[in-house]
Structures are given as C-alpha cells and as structure tokens.
Write a protein that binds this DNA or RNA. Structure first.
Lengths: 114, 114
DNA sequence: TTTATGTTTTGCCCATTAACGAAACAACGA
DNA sequence: TCGTTGTTTCGTTAATGGGCAAAACATAAA
C-alpha cells in the first residue's frame, strides 16, 4: 500500500504529470524540463526527486547534464507501467499535454550537447 | 486536465482508496464505511463528498441511510472506469485492502435495515 | 586554478487539506 | 409532537506540500 500511495501522490500534481507525459516522447535533461514548465530549477528538481522515489522516472548522468526518462519495465513493479499506461490513455489528447509537446519541439531544437 | 487532476487527487489519500476498494464488493451506507475506517463521521462524509465530486462514487438515499457505490460506466467518462480498474489491478492483493474486506464481513452481518 | 554551467539541497513562506467536535439538517419512530 | 438516529456543514487546528531564493555541489571549460 505504501508503494501505491507514493505513486498515487506523485501523480496528484499537475507539474509532475506533465513531466511524465513529456518524457513519454524520450529522455530530457533537467534544464529542458525546467524550461518547459517555466518553474524554478529547485522546484523542478524536487518534483523529479519525488518521481524517482516513486520509481516513475529513471535518470543517467552525462557530463554536466542529468537526463531523465521513464523507467523500463521491471519484474515486481508492473504497477508502475500500469500507472504510466493509465496516464497515456487518459491524457493522450489533453490540451495542456499537447501544448507541452509542441513547446518541447522548440526546446529540443535549441539544445546542443558539448 | 482539471477532471483528471480531480480524480488523481481523490485517489492520493489512503482512506479514500480504501473506500473505493471496499465499495468494489457492493454498496454500503456511510455509517458502515465510518465503522470500517474508524474515523469521525464528519471526516468520512468529507471524503465521500470529494469522491462524488470526482465522479468516483455515486449514491442513493433510502430512509435514513445514504448508500454509496461505485458508478456505472458513463459515456464520456471512460477514464473513471479506467482509474477504478487500475486500482483493482494494483491493490487486489494488498494487505490493508484484504483486512478491510475481512472486517467488512462483520460489519455487514450486524447491519439491519428497518 | 578559476570561472561558468547544470543540478540539488536547504530554509522559508503560503496555500491546501485531513482531522476533529459541535451544530445543523433529514427522516423515521414513539 | 418530541426524541433518536444517520448524515452533512461549519469552524478550528495541525500537518503536508508546492513555490522560490540562496547556498552548496558537480563537472567541464578557460
């Protein structure tokens, strides 16, 4: 139950839901997510830490950047995938989510790795 | 998005999740739910009102009692059913939920309508 | 080494919310 | 009618949680 509640609370915030949905299109570094949400870096960092605690995102470090992505399926954590699937089905055509995807195209095109 | 967030916030509380799962076995009056959760009537009433606002429960009045139940499928609100299905799949074997079901058997057997 | 950039941690403020008790409301029974 | 029972509303309190800025941390470039 505790693990379920962690996940449920994680998706009970609009910013975090937007993060998950935009990561569905591929990994992003924290600064790209910050730019998309237009929130302070510390705020976004906290959101990402909470999503990681709930096992809803994974990350890798590369140079100065930290790239976040949705987790790959893991035995014993099927309900994480079910949660993501629930989000996809419910929010696929949501106006906010679609606008975020559009905005992200711009952000992606300006991003260059060293 | 607003409707989705209402549902997401509704299931981000353990008491409310327990209510939904126990209603999956059939309708209950508010006093039975109160007895199961061991919370003050006013607290449970507020939880039920919030679940109703999110369209996650429905109710009917009969005499002095108010019976709550899960909603039947409605066109345009498929995601409510998807949410309930997500809960069922995730929490079917949860210890808390199973204990609640057991406790409810006692509560049901003591309940007599006028 | 110093500077710049990306990220997280810390500390604080403000809004939200879960909890309760008391009071109000509703419906039945004596 | 008057109590009794079931439920909700209201008012208050304590805990939670999202937001920011500033400081700390990490890594790469100058």
């Amino acid at each position: 139950m505790r693990e379920f509640m962690n996940v449920a609370k994680a998706v009970a915030d609009e910013s975090r839901v937007r993060i998950l949905m935009v990561l569905d299109a591929g990994e992003l570094c924290a600064c790209q997510i910050q730019e998309m949400l237009e929130l302070a870096p510390s705020t976004v960092s906290k959101h990402l830490a909470l999503l990681y605690q709930a096992r809803l995102v994974d990350y890798r470090k590369e140079g100065r950047w930290i790239f976040y992505r949705l987790p790959s399926p893991e035995p014993g954590w099927e309900f994480v995938q079910q949660t993501l699937e629930w989000l996809r089905q419910t929010l696929a055509w949501d106006a906010t989510i679609m606008a975020d995807r559009e905005k992200l195209k711009q952000i992606r095109s300006c991003f260059v790795q060293a």
